[in-house]
């Protein structure tokens, strides 16, 4: 398989571009997606290629344009709505939860809302307490939404394409931290499955369950631990709702230990949900207490050293796993 080097940003852009080429009903709208080229330069050049009908700059009206995306989806279009950061999505929460997630049910199955809302999230650029959060769990709490987390370059490239085929509203989380990160991906990478979690690395000693920014950090930690004789199985949840539990339950049944790593705040995060399912379904397989490394419960601070300290780092993962293994 031929591999090419690509930044996470480029992977996102290629996914959007392919979606626009594939289906005339697809259009992108969001703040600064057109003339500015995207707040994080993801959509740079797309306005020139596809024109203003399909790459729509919108005013700073999160509720307004997310709602308009919902309406357009109801009426037969396939909108990709970009919300600049997850922090701004709270201004559109009414539309996302009260409308997008609810209309199918409230109408007795009559109305589908096939739209994709992309949002950047997480730390990485010292953007402080109103631009840096990881709020995947807020959305994963809501029945009716499909919640995806693109923790790798191949998912950044391909999740959107499958998401646009979903008859139901999809929230797609992208990670600011990874935008400039280069990785190798297959030159023919395309649409990715959006129903199953993925084992990113096989291991027999412990199961590490993560998503988003946690994926590469966990793989890095697993690499280091491997040199110390500990084989970590790394599972990328990918789909936070509806959650694929089979993949991690099977892994825990094999390794008998589990650690969850996430950037989101600890209380009520995805770790709590994953643990509940492990306890409900495979409790007697466990040889050690479950552990989690989550975001510290503080609004994200501005200085770099504090920003980095507010989410789990690869070295934290290494030391936690060594402890869990009794080393």
């Amino acid at each position: 398989m031929e591999m090419v080097k690509m930044t996470y940003r480029e992977a996102l852009k290629q996914g959007i571009r392919e979606a626009l080429l594939n289906d005339e009903r697809v259009f992108l709208m969001g703040e600064d997606v057109g003339h500015y080229g995207g707040a994080f330069a993801v959509s740079k050049g797309l306005l020139q290629e596809f024109g203003a009908e399909r790459i729509m700059d919108v005013p700073l009206s999160e509720s307004g344009f997310v709602g308009a995306g919902i309406g357009a989806a109801m009426a037969g279009m396939k909108p990709i709505v970009e919300v600049m950061t997850v922090n701004f999505s709270l201004l559109a929460m009414d539309q996302i939860i009260n409308n997008a997630a609810t209309l199918l049910h409230m109408s007795g199955g009559q109305l589908n809302v096939p739209l994709v809302i992309r949002m950047g999230c997480g730390i990485g650029r010292q953007l402080a307490a109103q631009h840096s959060h990881s709020w995947e769990p807020y959305f994963a709490h809501v029945p009716g939404l499909v919640v995806l987390s693109a923790g790798t370059h191949e998912d950044a490239r391909g999740m959107l394409l499958t998401a646009l085929k979903s008859p139901d509203p999809v929230i797609l989380f992208e990670y600011t931290f990874m935008l400039n990160m280069e990785k190798e991906i297959a030159s023919d990478a395309g649409a990715m499955d959006i129903t199953k979690a993925k084992v990113r690395r096989d291991g027999k000693d412990i199961t590490l369950i993560t998503y988003g920014n946690g994926v590469y950090k966990s793989l890095e930690a697993a690499e280091e631990l491997s040199s110390q004789g500990i084989e970590v199985e790394v599972i990328d949840l990918r789909i936070l709702r509806p959650m694929d539990e089979e993949t991690f339950l099977a892994s825990v049944a094999k390794t008998h230990r589990a650690l969850v790593v996430e950037d989101a705040w600890r209380s009520g995060g995805m770790a709590a949900e994953v643990f509940s399912r492990i306890i409900e379904k495979v409790f007697f397989e466990l040889d050690a207490p479950l552990q989690r490394l989550c975001g510290v419960e503080v609004p994200i601070p501005y200085p770099r050293h504090l920003e980095e300290a507010s989410v789990p780092q690869s070295q934290d993962i290494v030391s936690t796993i060594r402890k869990m293994m009794g080393l």
């Binding site: 307004g64 709602g67 308009a68 919902i70 309406g71 109801m74 009426a75 279009m77 009260n98 409308n99």
Partner: peptide, 20 residues
Amino acid sequence: AIVAGHLPMDVGMALASKKQ
């Protein structure tokens, strides 16, 4: 039943019909 919550959707449906 969310007061004004349907107004943005309304604009979106009209946007779709214009595009179509």
